[in-house]
Nucleic acid binder design. Sequence first.
DNA 1: GTTCTAGAAC
DNA 2: GTTCTAGAAC
Length: 177
Amino acid sequence: MWKNGLINSIKDPNLQIISSEIAVVIKDKYPKAKYHFLVLPREDISSIFNLTREHLPILDELRLLATNAIEISGEKEKHFNIGFHAIPSMTRLHLHVISRDFNSPCLKTKKHWNSFNTKLFLDYDDLYKELKLKGTIQRIDLTLAKELENTPLNCNQCNFVAKTVPNLKEHLLKHIE
DNA sequence: GTTCTAGAAC
DNA sequence: GTTCTAGAAC
């Protein structure tokens, strides 16, 4: 089943960037930017909705490995989005670590873009705070989710609004030196 | 999550 | 006529 793809990827040493006793960093199979890593716990936590306060130390570890992976890439951490999808498709909790260029042939749809550039993307710090405060992560409202998926294609680096996905991708190239 | 592709949009 | 999006996949 495709939903289990990530769990198989963890086991493949060829895909691993770095790992610890607690978690593993792999390259996303379909990277949506120049750098796109996933940080997954070894513990079988299926998604953000299964998290409790007991897992806060694991989140700390995921965040630490995210920083390590970025260091290996040679880029600056401020050029990355670090967080979780509010509506994950694949099982096994995974922290996205993605460079803000979004320059990749695998970025193809409006939903792809909006999943990283609207409230469909939960910043690590915000999720961490919610978990600490409430002890659980609230599921996003389905109607709101649909609205967010259909948000106009706003550039993440200026106030340009693209008409189509190819139009956005062409525009994003201007922000790359 | 992706692939495929019908038909909408241009 | 070509580009682009969006829904089914048994």
